[in-house]
């Protein structure tokens, strides 16, 4: 697969990133978990903000693998800190405390793809026991080297385009690092939680978590280089609470 139009690639990754988040699973047309322990009609929405100057995007050198390079008409950039207009992308926002855990895992797989020698998405949230469908959309070798500490780690070769492997994570873990040793710039993080109340901040830093029961929750926003922050949020049935996480640029 070649992408002659870089915007298309970015758009595709964004779409998959959104698809990989918690709530947007439903937006993608899948039924909500049939027997989730406690769901409701409350919503938490908000924004993850980067205060201070965002570092200049760093171009990725893909010369080592022409198959990677040929899929980008312009150099791709690292995804560690992606901030536009003050919004911080790729923060994992989830309910850390306040949910009675143990919601059954959805049978709908979360998709974790490799496209243009980048992970799509860069940050993914899944539930304990939920199938994670790992795909390779590139006609080159990737090794998916996942290093959870609470679940069994794995390092699997995916040499062919179109290959799929399904894995699950047995226990909650913030976050499971995933890398590709063949292409050392490839790094992703998977958040494993035991309920469906999580999201990944979008390009503008926004996030939305829906379907919560009324209550008071500890919400955490985790970012791979800027750390984690928590806030207490109270939300009523049918209501929407709004919150902002502010990270300082280093």
């Amino acid at each position: 697969m070649r992408f002659h139009e870089p915007r298309y690639l970015i758009g595709l990754i964004a779409a998959i990133a959104a698809f990989g988040g918690g709530a947007p699973l439903q937006a993608a047309g899948d039924a909500a978990p049939a027997t989730a322990a406690a769901t409701g009609s409350a919503t938490i929405t908000g924004k993850v903000v980067l205060q201070g100057a965002a570092p200049a995007p760093v171009k990725i050198k893909m010369e080592a693998d022409p198959v990677c390079q040929q899929q980008h008409t312009e150099a791709a950039h690292t995804q560690q800190i992606v901030a536009e207009h003050g919004g911080l992308r790729y923060a994992f926002v989830y309910v850390k405390e306040g949910v009675a855990g143990g919601a059954p895992a959805p049978t709908t797989p979360a998709v974790f793809d490799q496209v243009g020698c980048l992970y799509a998405p860069h940050v993914l949230g899944v539930q304990v026991g939920q199938p994670v469908e790992i795909r390779n959309s590139d006609p080159t070798l990737h090794n998916v080297n996942a290093k959870p500490t609470q679940s069994t780690p794995f390092n699997l070769a995916m040499p062919m385009k179109g290959m799929k492997i399904t894995k699950t994570f047995a226990k909650r873990e913030i976050m499971v690092p995933v890398k590709c040793n063949v292409h050392p710039w490839m790094q992703a993080y998977i958040g494993v939680v035991d309920h469906p109340f999580f999201a990944v901040s979008a390009a503008d830093g926004s996030f939305t978590i829906t379907g919560l029961p009324a209550g008071t929750y500890t919400l955490e926003a985790w970012h791979e280089t800027l750390g984690a922050q928590t806030q207490t949020v109270t939300v009523a049935d049918g209501g929407t609470a709004s919150t902002t996480f502010t990270f300082q640029a280093k």
Binding site: N143, N145, P153, N155, L156, N181, V182
Partner: peptide, 14 residues
């Protein structure tokens, strides 16, 4: 089975 602790992955699924 791969060589755990190193970059060498398992090709069992491939």
């Amino acid at each position: 089975t791969g060589v755990d602790g190193t970059p060498m992955p398992s090709y069992g699924d491939a």
